[in-house]
Nucleic acid binder design. Sequence first.
RNA 1: CGCGGGGUAGAGCAGUUUGGCAGCUCGUCUGGCUCAUAACCAGGAGGUCGCAGGUUCAAAUCCUGCCCCCGCAA
Length: 323
Amino acid sequence: MTETEIKKTTIVFMGTPDIASIVLESLHLENYPILGVVTQPDYKLKNKDEDEYISPVKKLALEKNIPIYQPQKLDDDFKKWLKNLSPDLIIVTAFGKIIPRDILEIPKFKSLNVHASLLPKLRGASPIQNALANGMNETGITIMLMDEGIDTGDILSQKSIIIDPQDDYITLTGKLAVAASSLILKTIPSWIDGSLAPTKQDSNGATMCQLIEKSDGKINWDEDAQDIYNKFRAFRVWPGIFTFWENKNNLQKLSLNQIIVEKDKLGEKHHLGEVFKYSENEVGVQTNSGVIILEKIQLAGKNETPVNDFLNGYPDFIGSILK
RNA sequence: CGCGGGGUAGAGCAGUUUGGCAGCUCGUCUGGCUCAUAACCAGGAGGUCGCAGGUUCAAAUCCUGCCCCCGCAA
C-alpha cells in the first residue's frame, strides 16, 4: 500500500480536552480526511450569563469546518450517524465515555485509542494526574486497539516521556500531546498496511486510576511535603489543593494556589499543619516530613493573594493549625 | 429566579449587629540613627467607603435598585 493510499484513510475522531484537540490538529495537518468529530456536549456555566463550556476539540472542528456530533448517549441515533459516514478508522483520545463494542467495530480498520500512560499502568480516567500525584518520573503514550474493557486493548505502539520534577499537569499534558501526535502519525500507516502486530497487555502489571473528585484536593498534613507537592502538580488545573483554616470561629476553605516544597530545618519541627515563619519572608506549613512554603493562597469567597499580603490582613494566620 | 462570601488609601483587612471624628498591618515619601540594610526611631502624603436613589440633624453603617469579583453546587 502506498503512502498516498494510506493518506486516504477516512477517520472519525472522538475526544474532548486539549490533548485531544492537539492530536486532532496533527491528523488534520497531515491531510487525513476527517469525516467527523465526536465530542462531549456543551454545558452552560450558571452565573456567567453567556459563558458556555465548549470542548477544545469542538472549537478546533468549528475552525476547520469538520462536522461535529455531540451525543448525550452513544445510542442508535449515534450509530446511524456513524454508519452513514462509514469511516475507515476511529481514533479516540480522552473522549470521556465508554464506547460500546459494536460501535468500535464499525470501521474497516477498527478503532484506535491514544492513552496518556504506559499501559498496562494507569488504565482509566486520569492517567496524567495520577502519574504526577504518584510521583512517577516516567510516563508516556500508548496507542492500542480498543476493546470493551477500560484501556485493556492490544497495544500497537508506545512512547515514553520523562517527567521533570518541575512538571505539573499543564506542562506534562503539553509534552504528552506532542508525543501523542507524532506517535499516532507513525502508527496509523503501519497499522493500515498490516505491518504492525498488536501485542497483548500483561494484566499483571496493570494499575487503575479513578475519576478525580473535588475532595481529592483536600490536603492531609500528616503526609510528606513531597507527596502534597505532587498532588499540587497533579491537580493544578482542577480541583486544586485546599485545606481549612479557622478564622474567627469559622472554618473556611483555603486554596493553595502556588507552593514550594522544602526540607525541615534542622532542629525545627512544628505541629502538623501549623503555619509558621519559615524565614524572613517565607511562610511554611509543617507536614509529616518537610515543609510546604506558601506563595499564593485564596480564602473562599476572596481573590487569590500573595501570602505576605494575606498576613497584613490576617496576622493571626501565623501560629494557626490548618486542618 | 440554584446556595453563599465579598467590593473601605497602591496591597491585604477591621469597622456595618447598636447610624455620631475614616481605622489597622504592609508599601510609599521625608527626616533621623547606622559602615550598612528588607531592621529601628520620628513625621507626611494618599479615600467619591463599587454605582444610583431614598430615610435622617447626621449614613461605610439603615431601606430600594443596579454593577463587578469570588467560593460552592451543576
